[in-house]
């Protein structure tokens, strides 16, 4: 693509990533959570793939990494949701309101869910772009 588009995306991509990670991490304080945050990260990656070509974007997230990370995060997610009685010591809500470490269950689930959404959507977008 153009030089202008490439320069702009080079400049703006870290901020998109930052905003996506911010939305995921503050899911228990502001509206958002894992689904919008994960989508924002994938939007940033799609912009890089469109501007610089698929090869360069694939160097950021490789396909094997996506599969394995998705599996591991799903593993943790299932264990926390289905077996919450065993995790009460970590998950008991402590801390003041509006701290980052206040609602632990929601924070942990948002992080795992966010990584899972990112990997799933990245897989779909890269596969559709290979066509």
């Amino acid at each position: 693509m153009d030089v202008i588009v490439r320069t702009m995306i080079k400049g703006i991509f870290p901020f998109i990533l930052l905003f996506g990670v911010y939305t995921i991490m503050h899911g228990h304080l502001t509206p958002g959570g894992s689904f919008p945050g994960g989508t924002m990260i994938v939007v940033g990656l799609t912009l890089v793939a469109l501007a610089f070509g698929l090869k360069k974007a694939e160097r950021i997230i490789k396909e094997e990494t996506a599969h394995i990370l998705e599996g591991i995060m799903a593993f943790f997610l299932i264990f926390i949701v289905l077996f919450e009685t065993f995790f009460r010591s970590i998950l008991a809500p402590t801390g003041m309101i509006f701290n980052l470490w206040s609602a632990q269950q929601i924070l942990l689930l948002n992080i795992f869910g966010g990584i899972m959404v990112t990997m799933a959507l990245t897989m779909i977008v890269f596969l559709l772009m290979k066509e």
């Binding site: 899911g27 228990h28 809500p93 609602a103």
Partner: peptide
């Protein structure tokens, strides 16, 4: 749940199985 976001609490705590 000690969370300021009620929607987040419903989605991730009260009804986490749906999520």
């Amino acid at each position: 749940t000690n969370s300021a976001n009620v929607v987040g609490a419903i989605v991730w705590d009260f009804r986490s199985f749906d999520t």
